[in-house]
Amino acid sequence: MKRTSKRFLVDHDIEQIIGWQLRLGVITASVIVGIGGLLYLMQSGRQARPPYHQFLGTAAGFTTLKEILTGMQQGDAKAYVQLGVVILILTPIFRIAFSLVGFVLEKDRLYICITLIVLAVMMISIFGGLKV
């Protein structure tokens, strides 16, 4: 019984931490997207709507971290929005990392392996043969 109650405690703590981390990620991302969006409206709100029926792909820019950081240095509001977008995408990826910590604390080898596999798939999709 003691063992199960300890496991419950660790599980419970990790649940609280994951819950808190997910909320923080979404709030941070939305605040940055919101600030960037307001700047974007101030910079170019009066211009005509871009032709979104045509897909530009990577030509539109802000598809790599480098382009985003350069854009931010130049004060381009779109780059700030895109930074918020990146933080939003990173939120669930960080959640996997937090789960990994939880399983390490519980010394649950099977789930440490499973979590590492999921993280590896994520890394493959981030870096696998794509420009970064």
Partner: peptide, 27 residues
């Protein structure tokens, strides 16, 4: 969230995410 993030990183690098659309849609 995790499933969507796995493909979102690929799509971001392909230019599927336009800040001008992402901003009003996300908020």
């Amino acid at each position: 969230g995790v499933t969507a993030a796995a493909s979102a990183v690929v799509y971001l690098q392909r230019g599927y995410m336009d800040p001008g659309i992402a901003f009003p849609v996300v908020l």
